[in-house]
Structure formats: structure tokens, C-alpha cells
Design a protein around this nucleic acid. Sequence first.
DNA 1: GTAGCTGCCGTTTTT
DNA 2: CGGCAGCTAC
Length: 784
Amino acid sequence: MEALFDLPTTEPAAPRRQSGSAALLDDLNDQQRRAVEHIGSPLLVVAGAGSGKTRVLTRRIAYLLGERNVHPGQVMAITFTNKAAAEMKERVADLVGRRANAMWVSTFHSMCVRVLRREAKTLGMTSSFSIYDADDSRRLITLVARDIDLDPKRYPARTLSIHISNLKNELIGPEQASSAAANDLERRVAEVYVEYQSRLRQANAMDFDDLIMRTVELLQGFPDVAEYYHRRFRHVLVDEYQDTNHAQYTLVRELVGRGTDGLPPAELCVVGDADQSIYAFRGATIRNIVEFERDYPNATTVMLEQNYRSTQTILNAANAVISRNPDRRDKRLWTALGDGEKIVAYVGDNEHDEASFVAREIDQLVDAGIANNCDVAVFYRTNNQSRVFEEIFIRMGLPYKVVGGVRFYERREVRDALAYLRVLANPEDTVSLRRVLNVPRRGIGDRAEACVSTHADRERISFAAALNDAAVGKVALLNPRSQRAIAGFVELIDGLRRFVDDGQDVAEILDAVLDQTGYRAELEASDDPQDASRLENLTELVTVAREFTEAPADEPPPDAVDSATVGPEAGSLAAFLERVSLVADADQVPDPDDESGGMVTLMTLHTAKGLEYPVVFSTGWEDGIFPHMRALSDPTELAEERRLAYVGITRARERLYLSRAIVRSAWGQPMTNPASRFFDEIPADLIDWRRMGPDRSSPSRATTWGSRATGTGRAGLRPAPSKGWQDTTALTLDVGDRVNHDKYGLGTVVATDGTGPRATATIDFGTAGTIRLMLIGSVPLVKL
DNA sequence: GTAGCTGCCGTTTTT
DNA sequence: CGGCAGCTAC
């Protein structure tokens, strides 16, 4: 992508093989060099966006190996996505060659899986344990909640699951949760948690959070195990440290050690940027990076502020926005690259108009030879916003790729197929077993399933064992028809398991599963067009499996010490399942080099973190969308949204577009959204307004909505907002009120929702339709 | 035991 | 709008 732009690329293209430290250091700036050369005490690298943190990490590793005689097997580098891990490994390999293979470079989760598979026995599991994702975990929680007669309305599995996950992220075990429970909800959660954890163990399974929590448990509870890893890993490097949650923070501490077992603590280097912390909702806490110097009293901090990615215009916008966040370590990105183009802003009448602007603009950039499709990314706040763009792009014949969204591995048919494979790999995997028990339909209904489940409980045997009993008539209350169906199922699974025992390839096993279960036949027989695409997805899965066997990626590495003891055999069924369990959205980002002709990439702002594109469209800049509704009334969440804006802006190298729509359909009904407040935080002279909204005639909106003048009670009649001015207060409406809207005319309020800044009213405008409006800001609406 | 209907949710963001 | 849980009718 670099050819089209004058900007120097962030990284040198060619591998550097010259010997001596000069080669590793000479093109680094002073701070970067300090970070690479630093020896001994814990090191925090505060790396602003685009400041070359991956370069620092990879050079530091190369420097350790090349200049400090560290053996690659002593290095552990941890990232959050497989893509980041693969990239880091590749770039270190460019610098030091094949020796890089002996390092552990992996995500938190796969690193833990590796440790846990090796030490499974210690925790009372076997190394073939299954990994449950959020969906599997919720299924199990549903079962548990049902068994202890919880009202699913009051305690939905979703809520229970979130609470349990939070507890695990805080390293609070079931017993501790039980004794600490202070209210009804917490007691119920703890109750479910205890049982859930026990069922996981029975199923020889761990959920995502367990992978971290139980690794910590292992390191804390078994000093000899900890000592093994302390002895082995003398250097621990952590990327995206601002995204670590408490469990991950503790894990790092335990890996590094405290020197209590006679081994000095490992050398720790963490890299991160508090301004790019956008995962608080899943437990990440800025605290870990902010308090690093307190956690590690002798720590050294290096700040990287020179940016090698973007124009100064883009950086000024980013700096201006992020500086509004309170309690922040001040950091100002700068570049030597010059101002570049202004930021282009656009206001669409609706989301279709906005999308069509984006499409037209991309078309022009490509026609003018300014960019290729693959140089362009479109960002949005939530996945459902991708749809409009897809519609327009398809119509215009613009090739694109949506990253994330309804993920391949979350599609029902794919999950069904994988559940079969998991049952084959781990017979105790109850959740997967129950998932496929009657898929496709084979006459084993809820009734029969309940009988088997009861039998399993009563006899204290696994569900799988109970099924075997059922097949030979040893289960009470089971009618003969069900018994026959179950016997058929047991036979089916046994038959399939023989494929595994014979050491067949994953693709062949999968093929046999799809054939012998009748899954494929059922889809082929259907005339539902959705089933055709399901079939395609399954074919795709078989292809994935085949490619996996042929090129079992890079895991596990050819590490003599490990290959005997750690991880499933390369290319095996277990390895395949592990691989597909731990993929992330970000892992699916297309590489601009391989897609010929190139595609425009569409993704959420979250997925965009860590990436960069010459041309970026950040869309949906509307209060209520971005920042998200839920954040409008909460300063903490608003600060996180602002960091998200910062992330979005700083992805752009050359050209940045910001856009919004005045009317946007949500839940099938149109909503009018005011401009995002983040627009006002960007200095006006940086922006070239390609098209302005009707209200934008005055340079800035009225300051805040924090002081809600409406407060309580009925506000009565408010003056219509005068031209150029924003009404900062919410209009208070009740069902039945008559109103007049500048655009839609006379209407009647049919529903109201929310209060204060989140208040909306659904209004029947007769022929103009029924419309839900936000009542805050510049509503051109008068009560009659 | 299954199919088909209704009605209720919800929607951030994800390893 | 769309997915799923729960209900009713075969």
C-alpha cells in the first residue's frame, strides 16, 4: 500500500541481517532506543498510537537474543490477538531467523491453554479438556439455573453469565463468591456459580475466563509448577497492557515471580497506552497501566510520543478529542510528516445517504489513483451498522470485506458441526453432547433428555455414560421409541469415534460427521435458501479443516522440550478445535498484500484497534450511536467512548472522513440523532465540511447537557429553538400530547421512553409515519 | 415429539 | 427487524 503515498512507511520493509547492535538500533528514536536497551528493572513503555510500539517490542526481543545472549526459549511475549502474535513472531524471525520459533509468542488465552494442557492433571482435568465460549457457557448456565429452579425472567442466563464472568475476572472463586454475597442477586449468582463450576469440571471443560483464572490458580497453588515456569521464562513481554483485566494482571505477576523461590523475578516489559483502553466492559482496567509504577516500585517508564503513521492534522484532531478526558497522563502525539489533508466531514440525510457518500468518495479516490480499495477502511460503532454499507457497496460493485459481525464460527451450523467434533475429542463434554443430541432431529426430545439427565444425576455418572445406559434400557421412564433413538445415536457416535481412533484427518472426520449424522442430507433436501448458505458454510469449514491438516500453522512450535509434553499433536483434532476456539475478529482482517485488486475493509471501532489505513471513514458520529446511548449519562463510559474516538481517528494515515446521518433507522423505526459531541471537540479549522446539517450554522453547540434544566416535573411549553441555537434541555412529553414538528407536521405522542438526556418519544405523525425522536438537543418540535 | 405461532427481548464493543 | 423462548395444536 505504501507505493501510492509519500509518507514513509512505519516499518522498514527489508529484514535486517547486519550483525551488531547498530543494525537493531540505528533507525530508532531516542525513546525507542531506551526501551530496547533497558536492562533489569520492570519497564513500562507508554506508546501513543502509531509510535512504533510493535517495532520496539520486536527490536527489544531481537536485542535480547542478539546482544544479551538470552536464549529464545526464555522469552515469553503475550498479546491479545492471534494476528498480533503471528505478526510479532514473523517480525522477530525477520530479525533473528528461525531461532524465533523457540519463543512463546501467543495470546493470553492460548498461552494459558498451553500451560493448562501440560498441567491438567494437577487441576484434576485431562489434557483433552474442551474450551467453552460465551455461548456454550450460557447454555450450561441455563441448564444449571433451570435445575435449581431459578425464575428465568428474574435471573436470565445472560445476567448470571456476566456476573460469573466478572467474578472470574476478579479471581473470585465460587466459595468466596458464596461467602461474600451480600444481596439476593449475588447469592443467586454464587449459587449458580458453584454448580456451574462443578459441571464444567465434570464436562472436562473450561470457559474463556477459566483459562486465565485457573492458570493463576495453578501458579499460586503449586509452587513447583510456578518454579518450572520461572526457571524457564526469564523475559516476559506484554503488549496492549491497558487491556488487561485483574486476572491477567495477576497472571503476569505470577509469571514474573517475586524472587521467593530463589529465582530472581523475570525481566518484565509491558507496552500500552491508557488512551487506547476500550475494553473496560469486559473487565480491562486502566488501573493496571496507570499504577504500574506503584505495582512495581523500581519500574522505569519510557514515553513514545513521536508518531510515524499519520499527518499532523489527524494527530491534532486526536489530541484535541482525547485531551477532554479527565485524569489522564498528558501525552501529545507529533509527527514529522507535515499537515496533510484536512479532515472531511459529511452529514447525510439518513444512513443510506451517508453510506452512499462513503461509496462515491471511495470510488473517486480509486479513480483518481489516490488509493486502492484495500487502502480504505470503514469504521462504525456497532456491527449492525455494517448493513447499509454492504447494500450500497454491492449495488455499486465495490468489493468489500466485513470483519467480525456474525462470525463464521458462531453460525449455528458451524457450531453444530464443531460440537460433534468436540464430543468425539472429549466424551465428557456434556454441553456439546446435549447440543447435538437431537440435531438433526432424530426423535430424542426434551422428555427423553430429561430422563437421561436425571439418571446421570442419580447414579452420579456423566451424561455420556447415562446415554449408554439409556441405549440398553437401564434408564427409568424412557419409552421404547426414545430408547431406540438413543441407541442409534450412541452407535453413531461410537462409529464416528473410530475415525478419530484410526487417526484420520480432521477434514475426513468432519466429512464423516456431516454424512453419517444426516446433517448434510437434511440441508440438501431443504428448499430454504438459508439452508443453501448453511451448506456452503459447512463446505467452507471442511476446507478450513483440510488446510489446517495440510499446514498446521505454527503451533505448537518445534520446541524439543515442549513438543513431547505440551499441546495436542500438530494437525490433530484437538489442535484444530483449539485453533477454532480461540480466533478473534481481529484475526480475520484481510492482509492488503494478498487480496488481489483489494477490498474495502469494514469493521467496528473496537476491531480497528492496532490497525492502520491510508484512508479511514469513521461513520455514525451521532449522539446516541457514537457515543453510544448508554454512555451519554455516565462520565466513565463517555470517557471510554472518547478513547474509542481517539482509536478511530488515529487509525488514519493520510485521509480521515467523519460522517453522520440526521435520521437513522433503529429497530425498524426512524430516529433523529443529534451530531456527536465529539465533532465539537475537534478544532473547526481542521475540518472541511463537505455537507453540513441544518443545525450546524453556528460554530459550536451549546456546552453540555450535564445540567439538566428540565429536572423533574412537567416542563410545560418550551420556546422553539431559535435559529442557530441549541436548546440544551429535554422537552418533556406525555402520551397523548399533541405536537408540531418542523418537518413531519402535526402528531400525537403514542409512547415515551427514558428520562433526561435519554428521553425519547414515539410520535404518530399520521401520513408522515410513526417516528421515535430523541427529545434532547435540537429537536425541531413544539408541544401544542 | 414436532411444527408453527406469538410475543418478548434487545443492541454496544469480544478473548 | 430478527432471534429465541414458550406456548398450543397436531
